[in-house]
């Protein structure tokens, strides 16, 4: 039977759950466009859980979690590179990993800001975004239904995301949410 202290176990569970969005954002940034992101976060969580005894309370949990996820990403990208060109080579992955801790902070504030920014979009624009993030990046069916071309929809999507990014960034800056 395990002799783990229930309180420290609860603390660890709290850290792991609280920082899931940060971990997900890190993995997404490390393997953009890769459908295996869910598998990698699951593997990372599994390793984090198994290595929980190595985590020292009071130290930077997110940095520790990112460093463990980095190994899972590296292993995955190694296999992917044999099959196709991936955006992040080893050098770029290291550069981004070094900056990710600071750059991907403020998840909760971002979520609140996004909610406000989404509310400012026109219904048809929001519908397109919902389709994209509900049904994946293939826009053909939506294009057929709306009588528009896929390339026109892609341009609109890019414009909407740029608007949302700027809106979220502005709101965070205004509220002092950014470090």
């Amino acid at each position: 039977m395990s002799s783990e202290n229930p309180r420290s176990l609860a603390d660890f569970v709290g850290l792991l759950t609280r920082h899931q969005p940060d971990l997900l954002a890190y993995i997404i940034s490390s393997m953009p466009g890769d459908p295996d992101v869910p598998d990698i976060i699951q593997k990372s969580n599994f390793v984090l859980w198994n290595k929980r005894a190595q985590f020292r309370a009071g130290t930077d949990f997110v940095a520790w979690a990112f460093s463990i996820a980095r190994f899972e990403v590296l292993n995955h990208l190694k296999k992917q590179r044999r099959a196709r060109t991936v955006l992040l080579d080893q050098e770029l992955l290291e550069t981004l990993s070094a900056e990710a801790r600071e750059a991907l902070d403020s998840h909760d504030q971002r979520l609140v800001a996004l909610e406000v920014c989404l509310g400012q979009l026109r219904p048809q624009d929001r519908e397109l975004l919902e389709y994209r993030y509900r049904c994946g990046s293939n826009l053909q069916e939506y294009a057929d239904r709306e009588g528009r071309s896929v390339s026109a929809l892609s341009v609109t999507l890019n414009r909407l995301r740029t608007i949302l990014r700027r809106c979220v960034t502005r709101r965070l800056a205004a509220e002092g949410g950014m470090a």
Partner: peptide
């Protein structure tokens, strides 16, 4: 790049409610 990574994660979380299996694990 990081701003778009964060936005992508938020949009997946916020808008993909019909595809729970397609998104990565979140807090709950």
């Amino acid at each position: 790049y990081f701003e778009h990574a964060a936005l992508h994660q938020l949009l997946v979380y916020r808008l993909s409610r019909s595809h729970p299996l397609d998104t990565a694990r979140t807090l709950i």
